[in-house]
């Protein structure tokens, strides 16, 4: 099984995770810029984080033969803090980067006027930079938030096929299915989807425009739930080709719209360090 995890926050994960992911078949991933648990209080904290997403984290991933890409954006929660607003002006510099395959995560947290403004401004940036957009749906008031998200996407003029609306579930998938946007599902213990429920949603809606991710981060989560979903699909009667489509070809198709997806073999340099710990950083 070859796996492309289209949404996982590797910054918060250990090398053990990279090792297990590689062994499970994860060959590529996208790490969306998001909040970090602890709120940031200035723009510099964001640029250091963005630098890590285009510098250190891809290097770490390469030690395990995994291709790392990212999305860059100002997330909705921190969009509400005026001290972080300056980040918007810094985004174009990062949206020009090779490893950046979408603008995101965008969307709503508490659906404030500030969130409206920052969401719309970043959808405009996605259009301007010809990049896809990764849109998070809120944890609270999710159904209303999803509908409002689809309205904002429509108003922005971005092609629906360039947008993935993420963290969907049985209640919210229907409205997104009819919108032309891609449908993202996070297989995440406790609060989001489970492998078996995901297989049932795929049974009902089919594999087209479907993306499955682990969204593993600093919370209690599991980077191997993409693999578990592939296994649940097989157990539910799907064939290998369906699994490959959902776990590999679909995310490749979506993010390849950026023109920046690079799935060539990782270059020889990191492989030269195989067998060592993380290239034995100078500590």
């Amino acid at each position: 099984m070859r796996i492309f995890d289209p949404h996982i926050h590797m910054t918060s994960r250990t090398t053990d995770d990279y090792e297990r992911m590689a062994a499970a078949g994860v060959r590529a991933l996208v790490e969306p810029a998001f909040w970090l648990g602890q709120p940031r209080t200035n723009a510099g904290a964001f640029t250091d984080y963005f630098d890590s997403l285009i510098g250190w984290e891809p290097f770490r991933a390469a030690q395990f033969g995994i291709r790392h890409h990212c999305t860059i954006g100002l997330n909705p929660k921190e969009a509400n803090d005026p001290r972080c607003r300056e980040v918007l002006g810094l985004l174009p510099r990062y949206l020009a980067k090779d490893g950046v395959v979408a603008v995101g995560e965008l969307g709503y947290d508490s659906m404030t006027p500030e969130e409206d403004e920052v969401f719309a401004a970043q959808l405009a940036l996605a259009v301007e930079h010809e990049l896809p957009a990764l849109v998070h749906t809120p944890h609270r008031d999710k159904h209303r938030g999803t509908l409002r998200t689809l309205d904002v996407v429509k108003e922005s003029g971005i092609d629906a096929g360039m947008v993935v609306v993420d963290h969907l579930n049985e209640v919210t998938v229907g409205s997104v299915a009819g919108s032309g946007c891609w449908m993202g599902f996070s297989i995440y213990p406790g609060t989001k989807m489970s492998p078996d429920r995901m297989a049932a949603v795929l049974r009902e809606y089919g594999p087209e425009r479907m993306l499955v991710n682990s969204a593993a981060d600093w919370g209690r989560s599991d980077p191997l739930l993409t693999l578990a979903t592939g296994q649940a699909m097989l157990a539910a009667g799907f064939g290998d080709d369906d699994v490959d489509r959902v776990l590999w070809r679909n995310p490749v198709e979506f993010y390849a719209q950026s023109g920046r997806l690079d799935l060539s073999a990782t270059d020889g340099q990191p492989a030269a360090f195989a067998g060592n710990s993380i290239a034995r950083g100078g500590n």
């Binding site: 640029t47 630098d51 285009i54 510098g55 290097f59 510099r93 990062y94 980067k97 090779d98 490893g99």
Partner: peptide, 8 residues
């Protein structure tokens, strides 16, 4: 300062 690892 703003470069990716390749740019740096």
């Amino acid at each position: 300062r703003y470069g990716s690892a390749d740019e740096k």
